[in-house]
Amino acid sequence: MTAISAQFALNDVKPDMVLSDDLLDQQGQVLLPKGATLTEHIIESLHRHDVVSVRIAMGELTPEEDAIQRAHFQVRLERLFRKSDDEHANGLLHRYIRTFRLGEEA
């Protein structure tokens, strides 16, 4: 199944929420790893690090929802690349996006 996440302003974050992605500082250093459970102390610390928002795990898609989302991305990608010729750069970009959005092999 596919995980669902949402971006939250740090002021809206509550203890026991779980990060869906690694939280990085402005230099690219990991402040908190993906899956970290937030506490009141951690939230206060994030304010001191000038973090303004975080991605929070919201659950997972059902297999049916996942199939609908994959079909939606498939249609969008076909539309976006409908006029692209077979130039190497376009083909490479198309493959990378398909891998990212649809989980297909590049």
Rank of each mutant, 00 (worst) to 15 (best):
97 I>Y: 04
96 Y>S: 06
92 L>A: 02
29 Q>P: 04
73 F>T: 01
100 F>K: 03
58 M>V: 04
48 R>M: 12
48 R>P: 01
101 R>N: 08
67 A>R: 13
68 I>H: 15
17 M>P: 07
28 G>R: 10
71 A>I: 13
57 A>F: 14
10 L>H: 01
95 R>L: 10
44 E>G: 12
104 E>Y: 08
17 M>Q: 09
54 V>I: 14
50 D>M: 11
80 L>Q: 07
98 R>T: 01
64 E>Q: 07
82 R>K: 12
76 R>V: 07
26 Q>G: 07
93 L>R: 09
6 A>Y: 00
28 G>W: 04
49 H>Q: 11
74 Q>A: 12
3 A>V: 04
70 R>Q: 14
9 A>D: 07
87 E>K: 12
64 E>D: 14
28 G>K: 08
42 I>Q: 00
85 D>Q: 08
91 G>T: 12
22 D>T: 13
81 F>M: 08
60 E>L: 04
69 Q>N: 11
37 T>I: 01
13 V>A: 00
16 D>G: 00
9 A>F: 15
33 P>Y: 11
106 A>Y: 10
41 H>Y: 01
63 P>E: 09
94 H>A: 12
101 R>T: 02
84 S>N: 02
16 D>I: 00
32 L>F: 10
33 P>S: 11
28 G>A: 06
10 L>I: 09
60 E>C: 03
63 P>K: 04
40 E>A: 11
99 T>C: 06
62 T>H: 06
26 Q>E: 09
68 I>W: 15
50 D>W: 01
82 R>H: 12
18 V>F: 04
82 R>E: 07
93 L>A: 07
30 V>L: 12
19 L>I: 03
98 R>V: 01
56 I>W: 02
90 N>R: 05
86 D>I: 00
20 S>C: 12
100 F>H: 14
19 L>A: 07
16 D>Y: 00
40 E>N: 08
6 A>R: 09
90 N>K: 00
52 V>H: 13
77 L>F: 03
40 E>H: 05
71 A>Y: 14
41 H>A: 11
85 D>E: 14
76 R>W: 15
24 L>Q: 11
97 I>Q: 06
68 I>K: 15
56 I>Q: 06
69 Q>T: 09
103 G>C: 05
27 Q>S: 13
98 R>P: 02
43 I>P: 03
17 M>K: 06
30 V>Q: 10
65 E>R: 11
76 R>I: 08
35 G>W: 00
73 F>K: 05
60 E>S: 11
105 E>V: 04
36 A>H: 13
15 P>M: 03
29 Q>K: 15
95 R>C: 10
23 L>H: 03
73 F>R: 09
51 V>P: 09
29 Q>S: 08
77 L>G: 10
7 Q>I: 03
82 R>A: 11
72 H>F: 15
69 Q>W: 14
36 A>C: 04
106 A>L: 03
102 L>D: 08
20 S>L: 05
79 R>V: 00
66 D>N: 09
88 H>T: 12
84 S>E: 10
48 R>W: 10
